[in-house]
Design a protein around this nucleic acid. Structure first.
Length: 273
DNA sequence: AGTGGCACCTGTGTGC
DNA sequence: TGCACACAGGTGCCAC
């Protein structure tokens, strides 16, 4: 489901519902996520949530005293807040009972997500999180940084390189296609052949497209919804993703599709070089 | 060392 | 209607 905008939208939805509440009880119905949920998650009981942050596509919940809960939504995960007596849904794998009578429920049909408990900031002590590349919406993510990172995977197609978390985080399959279209760059170009001025254009488009998507509540293809249950409306703004055969918004020639590293890519052969 | 391919899962849509 | 198959928003690991 979620790329960076969807995770950011989820975080923003969680903050007013979770921060300041005490987690009274944790119930795990299915431990077999991407990494098994450990029994340590029960240590969250009795703790009050202090803050919620995002790093790449990880949701990082601070529970005070250097105790942390890290949540990843995988491809199909989502978070909902419901009254404690609301019926459980299929694939509700974890339930956090809160002091205000509501429950935060983690639902993930494909179970590619994860829920981890750590003592110590996950951005330091969870290797999966610690080794992530630059945040696209941060100041540090500049044309120079992108260009330098692209040199490390210079033989990859640029589309695949943009989805590599060591190059930049948060750009998944949808936004890789969208940012390349906006930049007029072919997905087949080798990452190492992207010039600094082109990197400049890419950085600007990555930032603006991700920001616009966040403002629209993210992109709902099939089943994404934010923590408030609302779908993302950015799907209406997508220029190429899922639009194979339809006329390009710039030149009216048909949008094409291709595969890069097994993932679908959409692009305009006429506008992107 | 960088790269492509596969694996992990369930659900949905399509074509026969 | 049923079945087989392809495909889906992510990412770690495994051979080459």
């Amino acid at each position: 489901m979620p790329e960076l905008p969807e995770v950011e939208v989820t975080c923003r939805g969680m903050r007013p519902r979770l921060v300041g509440r005490t987690i009274n009880k944790v119930r795990i119905f299915e431990k077999r996520l991407r990494l098994p949920v450990t029994d340590e998650i029960a240590n969250a009981e009795g703790r009050k949530v202090v803050a919620i942050d995002r790093r790449a596509k990880f949701i990082i919940v601070s529970a005070g005293d250097d105790c942390w809960i890290t949540i990843h939504l995988g491809m199909t995960g989502h978070i909902r807040f419901v009254e404690h007596d609301a019926p459980l849904q299929k694939h509700d794998h974890a339930v956090f009972c809160l002091s205000d009578g509501f429950e935060m429920r983690y639902n993930d049909p494909r179970r590619f997500g994860l829920i981890a408990w750590t003592v110590g900031d996950p951005r330091i002590c969870l290797p999966m999180v610690a080794k992530m590349g630059p945040e696209p919406l941060s100041e540090e993510f500049s044309a120079t940084v992108l260009w330098e990172n692209l040199q490390r995977s210079k033989k990859k197609p640029i589309k695949t390189a943009l989805m590599d978390n060591s190059v930049v985080v948060g750009v998944g399959n949808i936004y890789a296609s969208e940012t390349l279209f906006a930049s007029g760059i072919s997905p087949d170009r080798k990452a190492g052949d992207i010039s600094l001025p082109e990197a400049e254009v890419l950085v600007a488009n990555i930032k603006s497209i991700l920001q616009k998507s966040i403002a629209s509540g993210g992109t709902t293809i099939r089943d994404f919804s934010g923590a408030d249950g609302k779908p993302g409306y950015y799907v209406r703004e997508l220029s190429v993703y899922g639009h194979e055969g339809e006329p390009c918004l710039k030149c009216r020639n048909p949008i094409a599709s291709a595969k890069h590293a097994g993932r679908s890519t959409y692009y305009c052969p006429h506008c992107q070089h």
